[in-house]
Design a protein around this nucleic acid. Structure first.
Length: 480
RNA sequence: GCCGCGUUCGUCUAGUCUGGUCUAGGACGCCAGGUUUUCAUCCUGGAAAUCAUGGGUUCGAAUCCCAUACGCGGUACCA
C-alpha cells in the first residue's frame, strides 16, 4: 500500500478562513494518524486574486498552529509548463480541444441560455466546428485560446467519496470546463488533478464546495490514464442562520480570532469538534493535537454542515487558559494588556512583571479570551472612584462602615510580610471576621476595588501589597 | 431553472453501517440551588429533540426502503 499523503492547497488571496483551517487540520490529522505526509501546495493560478505576501502569511499562520508540512511548499505558478504539457496531451488524445471563443461571445451565449431557462453551459461551438485548418490559422495569427475538457456524451460518472459514499452525475450536466486559460495559466481543475497525481496524493481532502466539480476531475484522471485518489469532501462551516460562514455575520479569518485572544490550541480543538467527534460514547471535549491525531477518523466526520458557535469557542478557550502556567499566560497576555489605555496610563510600579503575574493568577479563572485581559481588573492599575454608598453591606450605617474599615486596617497592619500570601491572608481575615463576614469583607472589598463585583478581598490585598491596601482603606475612611 | 449534498435538544454531537439494551446519552448555552461576603471558578439539579414530514418493510425503526418538504452547495478563462 502506498504511503498516505494529503495536502492543504490554499490560494494566497488574503486571510485564512476558519473553515480552511479546519480542512487543513483534518488533512494533517489524517496524514499523521497514518504515518503519512502532509503537503502544503499554493494554488496561485489566478493572477488577479493573488495577494502580495499571501504565501508567507499562510505559512506563518499554519506554523502558529503547529500544522507543520512535510517537504517544501509547492507553488503552482512555478510549474506552468507542466500543466500546459498535459493540456496539450489531452488535446492530442482527443479528450480536450482548443477554444477560440472570446469573453464577449461566451457572455452572450450564457445570457441567452439563462433567458431560455437552460443550464448555462459552454455551447461547444469550437468543439463541433473547428477544422484542423482553422485551428492552424488561428494559431498562426496568435489568436488567444483556451483548452477545454471534451466531456463525453451520454455517460454516468460515478465516484466514491469517503464521507458520502457513491456520487453519480450524468455527463450531460457537466460543462466543457476550461483547463488552460488564455493567459497560459491552468484553471484549478487541471492544476489540481495534475499536481495531486504528480505529488502522489492519496486522499484529496477539501471542502464540500468541490463536490460538484469532482466528476470533471475524474474525467481528467481518466483522460491522462491516471488512477484517481480517494476523494473526501468536508461539510461546510455555517453561520447561525445556516448559510455558509461568511464575513457578513462575524469574523471568519483565523487572524481575527487570534487578535481577539483565542489560543491556537483552543481554536484548533474547537474547529476539530465541529463535525467530528471520536464517538464510541466518548465524552471528551478537550483534545491536544497529539490526542486528535490519535483519535481522528475520517469516517467519523459528519456529512452535514455545522453552525459555528462562538459560545462554545469561549468555553474551550477558557479551558485552555486555565491550563496555562503563569509564565505562559503572562507571555501570551502581555501584548493584549499593553494595548489597553488603562494599562498605558498606569504608574510604572504597576506595570512590573511580578505585579501583572499576580493579577493574572486572579484573572485566570475568569478569562474567556486574552483580549479582555485586565478589563475587569482595572482597579489594580488606577486610583479609585466610587460612590461611598457602595461601601455599605446591607443596611450598614456610616459609623458601622467606618468601624469595619478600621478593623480591617488593623488586621492588615498586623500581618507580617512573610504571611502576606493569598492563603494565609484568607485564613487570618476569616478568623478575625468571625460571624461578621459580610460586615467586614464587603466594605473592605469595595474600599480596595471600588467595584460592586470583584475577586475576593484576600486576593486583591495580596496583589496590592500592604502599603497600597492600607492607603486605599484610608482613602475610603476619609470619604465617609 | 438545472445538478449535487444534507436533515437527532437553541447549538455541537452520541446512537444509524451490524433494527430491540434509546421512555434518545453527553457538551456548550440557559434556569435553579450549593460551594464559609460580591463576581468568576467549581459542584448538584432542571427545562430542552413526537430523531424534518408522509408512506412502506418488520413482531419491533432514530436506525432499512421510497416519496415530499426544507436547507445548503455548485452551475466562471475564481478557487
Amino acid at each position: 500500500m502506498n504511503k498516505i499523503r494529503t495536502r492543504f492547497a490554499p490560494s494566497p488571496t488574503g486571510l485564512l478562513h476558519i473553515g480552511s483551517l479546519r480542512t487543513a487540520l483534518y488533512a494533517y490529522l489524517f496524514a499523521k494518524k497514518n504515518g503519512g505526509d502532509f503537503i502544503l501546495r499554493i494554488e496561485d493560478t489566478d493572477q488577479k486574486r493573488n495577494v502580495p505576501g499571501g504565501v508567507k502569511y499562510l505559512m506563518e499562520t499554519l506554523k502558529k498552529f503547529n500544522l507543520n508540512w512535510d517537504k517544501d511548499p509547492y507553488i503552482q505558478s512555478e510549474h506552468l509548463e507542466v500543466y500546459k504539457k498535459y493540456a496539450e496531451q489531452m488535446v492530442a488524445s482527443g479528450d480536450a480541444y482548443y477554444c477560440f471563443c472570446d469573453q464577449e461571445r461566451l457572455d452572450e451565449s450564457r445570457k441567452k441560455q439563462v433567458a431560455e431557462k437552460k443550464a448555462p453551459m459552454y455551447d461547444q461551438l469550437c468543439r463541433r466546428n473547428s477544422t484542423p485548418e482553422e485551428i492552424k490559422k488561428n494559431m498562426e495569427n496568435r489568436c488567444p485560446y483556451t483548452i477545454r475538457l471534451k466531456v463525453p456524451e451520454n455517460r454516468v460518472i460515478v465516484f466514491d467519496d469517503v464521507i458520502r459514499g457513491k456520487v453519480r452525475i450524468e455527463s450531460s450536466n457537466i460543462d466543457d470546463q476550461v483547463l488552460l486559460k488564455s493567459d497560459g495559466f491552468p484553471t484549478y481543475h487541471l492544476a489540481n488533478v495534475v499536481d495531486d497525481y504528480l505529488m502522489k496524493i492519496t486522499h484529496v481532502i477539501r471542502g464540500e464546495e468541490w463536490l460538484p466539480s469532482t466528476p470533471k476531475h475524474v474525467l481528467i484522471y481518466e483522460a491522462l490514464n491516471w488512477e484517481s485518489p480517494k476523494f473526501v469532501h468536508l461539510s461546510l462551516l455555517l453561520n447561525a442562520d445556516k448559510s455558509k460562514l461568511s464575513k457578513r455575520q462575524g469574523d471568519v479569518a483565523v487572524e481575527d480570532y487570534l487578535a481577539k485572544g483565542y489560543l491556537e490550541e483552543a481554536l484548533l480543538n474547537f474547529v476539530a469538534l465541529i463535525g467530528w467527534n471520536p464517538g464510541q460514547g466518548s465524552t471528551q471535549e478537550v483534545f491536544s493535537l497529539q490526542e486528535l491525531i490519535k483519535y481522528f477518523e475520517l469516517e467519523k466526520v459528519h456529512k452535514a454542515g455545522a453552525v459555528f458557535d462562538p459560545k462554545k469557542l469561549d468555553w474551550i478557550n477558557s479551558q485552555y487558559i486555565k491550563k496555562l502556567s503563569i509564565d505562559e499566560l503572562y507571555q501570551k497576555a502581555i501584548k493584549f494588556l499593553e494595548q489597553k489605555e488603562f494599562f498605558q496610563k498606569a504608574p510604572t510600579e504597576k506595570k512590573s512583571e511580578e505585579y501583572i503575574k499576580k493579577i493574572l493568577q486572579i484573572e485566570q479563572d475568569r478569562l474567556e479570551n486574552l483580549f479582555s485581559v485586565g478589563e475587569s481588573s482595572q482597579f489594580f492599575f488606577q486610583d479609585l472612584e466610587y460612590d461611598k454608598n457602595l461601601l455599605a453591606w446591607k443596611n450598614m450605617s456610616g459609623e458601622e462602615i467606618k468601624n469595619s474599615l478600621e478593623k480591617a486596617q488593623k488586621i492588615l497592619e498586623e500581618v507580617s510580610g512573610l504571611e502576606w500570601r493569598k492563603d494565609s491572608l484568607e485564613k487570618i481575615m476569616m478568623e478575625k471576621a468571625g460571624a461578621q463576614r459580610g460586615e467586614l469583607l464587603w466594605p473592605l472589598r469595595v474600599a480596595l476595588t471600588g467595584e460592586k463585583k470583584s475577586p475576593s478581598p484576600f486576593e486583591v490585598v495580596w496583589v496590592l501589597g500592604k502599603e497600597e491596601s492600607l492607603k486605599r482603606l484610608e482613602a475610603a475612611i476619609s470619604r465617609l
